[in-house]
Amino acid sequence: MSHIERLPRNRTYLMCPPEHFTVEYTINPWMDITTKVDAGLALTQWQSLKDTLTGLGHVVHVLDPRPELPDMVYSANGAFSVDGTVYGARFRYPQRADEAVAHEAFYRTGDAWRFVAPQHVNEGEGDFAYLPAAYGGIVLAGYGFRTEPAAHAEAQEVLGRPVISLKLVDPAFYHLDTALAALDDRHVTYYPGAFSPASQRVLAQLFPDAVLADRADAEAFGLNLVSDGRHVILNTEATAMGHKVRDAGYLPVHVDLSELKRGGGSVKCAVAELRS
């Protein structure tokens, strides 16, 4: 794959500053309420990520944070958009439920989006990934910990794109975006051990040239990345993953997001892609 020239495509993203970020409850294995979050550092690191994206020529919209929603910084979970249609989120845990309301309000402002409210539990881009140039445009969807399998069928009806269900089996990788990422419009990288044996076979069939990550990469949140097709933005801890994407012809760009990892997220969790 490395001999292919990787070309970036300008993207539009949605982010939410961690002005009220804290870890005050535990809803994933990474959250430790005994360790105090450095709120100032979290905001500085978030700003660095935003500046990195805008510096690469991308547009970043900012969602206003709400004080009662400390996890709102993980804006990828709030919805999933394809071709101007937005499939809204419905969070599994009540602590995050109102985040979906804030995201819906963003999409319902103006007439740029067709917003569809969900009936089933799903956590937006946390468990959905879109590859517009693979097989005519397909959605990869995770289940097993947060998103209900029924949401996959619902998303397919809402978006009019084939949805491939993938079963997550390791609690450490509770969202699809901790175990798999789109490197461009047709290629992915993933950690096989996060998926059931059957789902591993599905991925191997669909993406025989995928960049395969190992458990150390996944634990470093190296798969929780954002790529524009050339530049792969990933956290500083994921050095080995950076080498792997470079070997595949992409350009790794490392950003320190140590504070956001305390809540169980990294680059991708903090960035929702807006696909108009």
Rank of each mutant, 00 (worst) to 15 (best):
E104M: 15
G222H: 08
G264V: 07
Q205G: 01
G78C: 13
H152G: 11
E157T: 13
F173H: 04
V62F: 02
P17V: 11
T26G: 02
E237K: 07
V267Q: 07
T26R: 13
T85E: 05
L43W: 07
K36Q: 14
A97Q: 10
R9P: 00
P118C: 12
R146H: 14
V267M: 06
I164D: 06
T26A: 15
T178W: 11
K244W: 01
R90Q: 15
S266F: 08
Q45Y: 06
G88Q: 08
V59D: 10
Y191L: 05
Q45G: 01
T147D: 08
T52N: 05
L180P: 00
M241L: 07
T12F: 01
G136F: 14
V62Q: 12
D38C: 07
S48R: 14
I233H: 01
G249D: 05
A204Y: 00
T35V: 15
H231S: 11
K268V: 05
D256T: 04
E157C: 13
N122L: 09
G124H: 09
T26D: 08
N28W: 02
N122A: 06
T26C: 09
C16V: 09
R6L: 05
H243L: 14
R201L: 13
G110I: 06
D64F: 00
L274A: 03
R246Q: 15
S196F: 05
P252L: 11
V60G: 12
N122T: 13
V253F: 01
A141Y: 10
H61D: 14
D217M: 03
A102N: 00
A39F: 02
F128M: 09
A270S: 15
G88N: 05
Y191P: 02
L260F: 08
V253W: 04
W113S: 05
T44E: 10
A153L: 15
G249C: 05
R262I: 08
T178D: 10
L56G: 00
F80T: 06
V62C: 13
V255A: 07
F207C: 02
F145P: 00
P118H: 04
A89I: 10
H61Q: 10
I233A: 04
